[in-house]
Amino acid sequence: MQLIPQACQDSDVCLDIWYKFYMEPDIIKTSLNGTKHYRFEFDATYSHELAGLNPDIICEQWRAWEITDDIYTHVKSGELNPHPSNVSFTLPVQRRAHIAKTVTPYVFTAAQIDALNNCLSLDYENLGAPAADILRQGVSFPAPGQLVSSAQAA
Protein backbone atom coordinates (compact mmCIF):
# COMPACT_ATOMS: atom_id res chain seq x y z
CA MET A 1 0.00 0.00 0.00
CA GLN A 2 3.01 2.19 -0.59
CA LEU A 3 3.88 3.12 -4.13
CA ILE A 4 7.46 3.89 -5.07
CA PRO A 5 8.17 5.20 -8.57
CA GLN A 6 10.73 3.39 -10.69
CA ALA A 7 12.33 6.70 -11.62
CA CYS A 8 14.79 5.30 -14.15
CA GLN A 9 11.92 3.77 -16.13
CA ASP A 10 9.24 6.45 -15.81
CA SER A 11 7.57 7.57 -19.01
CA ASP A 12 5.77 10.89 -19.34
CA VAL A 13 2.47 9.09 -18.69
CA CYS A 14 3.82 7.61 -15.44
CA LEU A 15 5.14 10.99 -14.35
CA ASP A 16 1.65 12.43 -14.85
CA ILE A 17 0.27 9.75 -12.53
CA TRP A 18 2.94 10.40 -9.84
CA TYR A 19 2.21 14.11 -10.14
CA LYS A 20 -1.51 13.45 -9.56
CA PHE A 21 -0.69 11.33 -6.49
CA TYR A 22 1.47 14.18 -5.22
CA MET A 23 -1.38 16.65 -5.60
CA GLU A 24 -3.84 14.48 -3.60
CA PRO A 25 -4.03 16.11 -0.16
CA ASP A 26 -4.74 12.95 1.86
CA ILE A 27 -1.97 10.81 0.32
CA ILE A 28 1.05 10.55 2.61
CA LYS A 29 4.25 11.59 0.83
CA THR A 30 7.69 10.46 2.01
CA SER A 31 10.96 11.58 0.49
CA LEU A 32 13.08 8.79 -0.93
CA ASN A 33 16.27 10.78 -0.22
CA GLY A 34 18.75 8.42 1.42
CA THR A 35 17.20 5.25 -0.05
CA LYS A 36 18.28 3.11 -2.99
CA HIS A 37 15.27 4.44 -4.94
CA TYR A 38 16.39 8.08 -4.79
CA ARG A 39 17.60 9.74 -8.00
CA PHE A 40 19.71 12.80 -7.18
CA GLU A 41 19.59 14.24 -10.69
CA PHE A 42 15.78 14.65 -10.53
CA ASP A 43 16.04 16.98 -7.53
CA ALA A 44 19.20 18.72 -8.76
CA THR A 45 18.15 19.86 -12.23
CA TYR A 46 15.21 21.85 -13.54
CA SER A 47 12.28 19.89 -14.95
CA HIS A 48 8.65 20.66 -15.69
CA GLU A 49 7.61 18.20 -12.97
CA LEU A 50 9.80 19.90 -10.36
CA ALA A 51 8.56 23.33 -11.44
CA GLY A 52 4.95 22.14 -11.40
CA LEU A 53 5.25 21.12 -7.75
CA ASN A 54 6.82 24.49 -6.90
CA PRO A 55 4.62 26.98 -8.79
CA ASP A 56 5.65 29.99 -6.68
CA ILE A 57 9.22 29.89 -8.00
CA ILE A 58 9.74 32.19 -10.97
CA CYS A 59 11.78 31.22 -14.03
CA GLU A 60 14.65 33.56 -13.20
CA GLN A 61 15.10 31.89 -9.82
CA TRP A 62 15.24 28.42 -11.41
CA ARG A 63 17.91 29.64 -13.84
CA ALA A 64 19.98 31.17 -11.02
CA TRP A 65 19.78 27.99 -8.94
CA GLU A 66 20.65 25.84 -11.95
CA ILE A 67 23.75 27.93 -12.70
CA THR A 68 24.96 27.62 -9.09
CA ASP A 69 23.93 23.93 -8.76
CA ASP A 70 21.69 24.98 -5.87
CA ILE A 71 18.35 23.33 -6.72
CA TYR A 72 19.11 20.19 -4.67
CA THR A 73 20.05 22.28 -1.62
CA HIS A 74 16.61 23.89 -1.65
CA VAL A 75 14.84 20.54 -2.14
CA LYS A 76 16.82 18.89 0.67
CA SER A 77 16.11 21.78 3.07
CA GLY A 78 12.38 21.48 2.40
CA GLU A 79 12.08 24.88 0.73
CA LEU A 80 11.15 23.14 -2.53
CA ASN A 81 8.98 20.08 -3.09
CA PRO A 82 10.96 17.14 -4.50
CA HIS A 83 10.47 15.66 -7.95
CA PRO A 84 7.47 13.28 -7.93
CA SER A 85 9.74 10.33 -8.82
CA ASN A 86 11.66 10.92 -5.58
CA VAL A 87 8.63 10.47 -3.33
CA SER A 88 6.80 7.39 -2.09
CA PHE A 89 3.04 7.54 -1.76
CA THR A 90 1.00 5.87 0.99
CA LEU A 91 -2.73 5.84 1.49
CA PRO A 92 -3.98 7.12 4.84
CA VAL A 93 -4.87 4.49 7.46
CA GLN A 94 -8.63 4.75 6.95
CA ARG A 95 -8.33 4.22 3.18
CA ARG A 96 -5.96 1.27 3.67
CA ALA A 97 -8.44 -0.26 6.12
CA HIS A 98 -11.28 0.18 3.62
CA ILE A 99 -9.27 -1.54 0.90
CA ALA A 100 -8.30 -4.35 3.26
CA LYS A 101 -11.96 -4.93 4.15
CA THR A 102 -13.35 -4.78 0.64
CA VAL A 103 -10.64 -6.10 -1.65
CA THR A 104 -8.60 -8.76 0.07
CA PRO A 105 -10.09 -12.26 0.15
CA TYR A 106 -8.10 -13.11 3.28
CA VAL A 107 -8.89 -12.66 6.96
CA PHE A 108 -5.84 -11.40 8.84
CA THR A 109 -5.16 -11.35 12.56
CA ALA A 110 -4.00 -8.13 14.24
CA ALA A 111 -0.42 -9.51 14.38
CA GLN A 112 -0.51 -10.29 10.66
CA ILE A 113 -1.79 -6.79 9.84
CA ASP A 114 1.05 -5.29 11.91
CA ALA A 115 3.55 -7.50 10.05
CA LEU A 116 2.07 -6.44 6.70
CA ASN A 117 2.29 -2.77 7.65
CA ASN A 118 5.94 -3.31 8.60
CA CYS A 119 6.52 -4.91 5.19
CA LEU A 120 5.06 -1.86 3.49
CA SER A 121 7.57 0.54 4.99
CA LEU A 122 10.77 1.66 3.26
CA ASP A 123 12.52 -0.94 5.40
CA TYR A 124 10.88 -3.90 3.68
CA GLU A 125 14.27 -5.36 2.70
CA ASN A 126 15.09 -5.79 6.40
CA LEU A 127 11.97 -7.73 7.35
CA GLY A 128 13.15 -10.34 9.83
CA ALA A 129 12.18 -13.98 10.09
CA PRO A 130 9.80 -13.53 13.09
CA ALA A 131 7.68 -11.01 11.18
CA ALA A 132 7.70 -13.20 8.08
CA ASP A 133 6.61 -16.18 10.19
CA ILE A 134 3.68 -14.18 11.60
CA LEU A 135 2.51 -13.51 8.05
CA ARG A 136 2.45 -17.21 7.25
CA GLN A 137 0.44 -18.23 10.34
CA GLY A 138 -3.18 -19.11 9.91
CA VAL A 139 -4.36 -16.96 7.01
CA SER A 140 -7.91 -18.11 6.38
CA PHE A 141 -10.34 -17.68 3.54
CA PRO A 142 -13.86 -16.36 4.24
CA ALA A 143 -16.91 -18.28 3.14
CA PRO A 144 -17.96 -17.49 -0.44
CA GLY A 145 -19.65 -14.11 -0.63
CA GLN A 146 -18.60 -13.16 2.89
CA LEU A 147 -15.76 -10.77 3.68
CA VAL A 148 -14.77 -10.43 7.29
CA SER A 149 -13.01 -7.31 8.48
CA SER A 150 -9.77 -7.54 10.44
CA ALA A 151 -11.59 -6.15 13.51
CA GLN A 152 -14.07 -9.04 13.39
CA ALA A 153 -11.26 -11.55 12.95
CA ALA A 154 -9.33 -10.30 15.99
Rank of each mutant, 00 (worst) to 15 (best):
Q6A: 13
Q9S: 15
Q9Y: 15
D10A: 15
W18L: 08
Y19A: 06
F21E: 05
Y22G: 11
M23Q: 15
E24I: 03
D26A: 13
T30I: 08
T30M: 05
T30G: 03
G34C: 03
K36M: 10
H37C: 07
F40K: 11
E41V: 13
D43G: 04
T45K: 10
S47Q: 06
S47V: 03
P55H: 11
I57N: 04
C59I: 14
C59A: 14
Q61G: 02
W62Y: 07
R63H: 11
I71D: 01
Y72I: 10
V75R: 02
S77K: 11
S77D: 14
S77T: 12
G78L: 04
N81E: 12
P82E: 00
S85M: 09
P92D: 01
A100N: 12
V103N: 13
V103R: 14
T104V: 12
P105C: 10
P105R: 15
T109F: 01
Q112Y: 00
I113T: 07
L116W: 03
N118F: 06
L122G: 06
Y124S: 09
N126H: 09
G128E: 14
P130V: 10
P130M: 10
A132F: 05
D133M: 08
I134R: 01
G138D: 07
F141R: 15
F141G: 08
F141N: 13
F141M: 15
A143H: 12
G145Q: 07
Q152M: 12
Q152A: 14
A153F: 04
